[in-house]
Amino acid sequence: MENVNVGIIGLGAIAETSHILHLNDSENVTIAAVADLDINKAQEIAEKYQIPHSFQEAEEMFKQVAIDAVIICTPNQTHIPIATLAAQKGIHVFMEKPIGTDLQDVNDYLELAKAKDVLTMVGMTHRFRRDTGILKEYAEQQAFGDVYYAKAKLFRRRGTPKGWFTNKALAGGGAMMDIGVHALDLAWWLMGNPQVQSITGKTLNGLGNYQTKYTSSWESKNKKLNAEHVFDVEDFSSAWIRFKNGSVLSLEIAWAVNGEQDGNIDIELFGNKGGATLSPLTIFKEENGLLSKTSPLYESSIPFKAEIEHFIECVQTNTTPLIDGNDGYEILKMIHGIYDSSDQNKEVSFD
Score class of each variant (00 low, 15 high):
11 L>S: 08
68 D>F: 07
250 S>E: 04
3 N>Q: 10
344 Q>T: 10
346 K>N: 12
63 K>R: 11
68 D>G: 10
175 A>S: 15
70 V>I: 11
116 K>Q: 09
283 I>Y: 04
350 F>T: 01
304 F>A: 15
106 V>M: 10
115 A>E: 14
167 N>S: 13
290 L>E: 08
130 R>Y: 03
78 T>I: 12
311 F>K: 10
311 F>A: 10
172 G>P: 06
189 W>M: 15
278 L>I: 12
94 F>C: 02
14 I>V: 13
34 V>S: 10
284 F>H: 11
206 G>S: 12
192 G>P: 01
66 A>L: 07
232 D>T: 02
23 L>Y: 07
70 V>K: 05
222 N>A: 14
332 L>M: 04
199 I>V: 04
296 P>M: 09
65 V>Y: 08
309 E>G: 14
328 G>A: 15
215 T>D: 11
23 L>T: 08
89 K>D: 00
19 H>Q: 12
206 G>H: 14
241 I>G: 00
304 F>N: 15
104 Q>T: 13
178 D>R: 05
302 I>N: 14
51 I>H: 03
247 S>E: 11
254 A>W: 14
321 P>K: 05
328 G>K: 08
55 F>T: 05
349 S>A: 09
52 P>W: 01
13 A>I: 06
191 M>K: 02
17 T>L: 12
132 T>N: 03
99 I>Y: 01
253 I>Q: 08
286 E>C: 09
80 I>K: 03
220 S>I: 10
